[in-house]
Design a binder for these strands. Sequence first.
DNA 1: ACGGCTGAGTGATTCCCGTTTAGTGTCGGG
DNA 2: CCCGACACTAAACGGGAATCACTCAGCCGT
Lengths: 211, 211
Amino acid sequence: MSVALKKPQKSARKPKGDGHLRRGEILAAAERIFIAEGYSGATIRKIADAVGVSSTALYMHFRDKDQILLEISNDAIERLLELNTQIASRPIDPVSRVRLMLEAYMRFALDNPNTYQLVFCTTGDHISSDKVGDTMALGDRCFEKFSEPVHQIAAQGRLRSGSAVQAAEVLWSGCHGLVSLLITKPSRTWSDAEGLMKVMLDGLLHGLVTD
Amino acid sequence: MSVALKKPQKSARKPKGDGHLRRGEILAAAERIFIAEGYSGATIRKIADAVGVSSTALYMHFRDKDQILLEISNDAIERLLELNTQIASRPIDPVSRVRLMLEAYMRFALDNPNTYQLVFCTTGDHISSDKVGDTMALGDRCFEKFSEPVHQIAAQGRLRSGSAVQAAEVLWSGCHGLVSLLITKPSRTWSDAEGLMKVMLDGLLHGLVTD
DNA sequence: ACGGCTGAGTGATTCCCGTTTAGTGTCGGG
DNA sequence: CCCGACACTAAACGGGAATCACTCAGCCGT
């Protein structure tokens, strides 16, 4: 690894060492460990060891442990938002859009179980960081992206019952319920995940939307 | 209720005084604190203080902290099972039964958020207790009680798609998703919970069951 | 060349957690 | 009266997050 990175800054005190690279290294290590071992497995000391610094050094770059994990959460939600944005740009009918988004959502959850749990299965009340606002805003944008086609369906008068917002919340939470149980209760004997996802989507969409 | 503690002792040196009352006292205090402050708030020392003994004393009656919480979980699931049993005995059609059970389930969750989270929103992999088997068995019985009317519906050929087991799992997990999000993300602005529950039930039942 | 400033990093320490160990007082049966 | 089991405790351990006082290295203007 060459250290040829430099920032052309005028009165720059900055580029003395590789200090500002650390932040990224820490995040990368933290994400790796967290994905493999979950929240409680991703210890401050373990992360620090992986980076090659003392545990105290993490507090140079992050307020506390939760801020590190929060940053990882934000990345995840951003990826989710990007998925939705990509689907939103496709020239298809709104019901297909809704289905694709929910399908992508559930696949994302099953592919990133620890991250999904961190973002969607825990109360965030112990977090004192100021970045919580960012996370919530991102989550809201993600939900709104998903709501758009639902509103289109509602505007077509094809909602069987309830408002567009209610329908969106029910669709989301229904799919969330399925993947969250699959993730947190793997010891239970479940039907095939693919089949369950299909039944959930068929059921909810058929139940909420007229064709 | 009463735990059969067998001691290979001839002359039953029965309790001198309040020894075996402690277990109940501890459980009561633990439940109270846990309901109010959640898992991490229900500290061993805090529970011990509430009972009026040293923290070590809890280990006279329970293997570890998780066993205390597990006992609370089991009580909760038993209450749920009783709800389902009660509803199962009512002379009504299976769809109404399913709806009533799911409604009772969701109300139970919203009324006991911390307990619900403990039972249904966490992986139980850190628990080393032998009582985990009990919990899982109770949960299975609870799910089977709920599955019965779903199987009846399936036997009537009224399932729109998927198997009876799939339908039961989807119905359950959909409702779980709604209440778990309401519980873990209270800071989000949700539609009215009652309305959401209704839309979820109407949607899922209409989507999965023909009338 | 030099001393001060500052950012990066560290070892020791604090606090709280669950849990363990070794020990204390007390009661009941022989 | 004594012995042992019981219910319990004080003290400690190890491992978490977080803080503190401190060092070290490079850049600055003089």
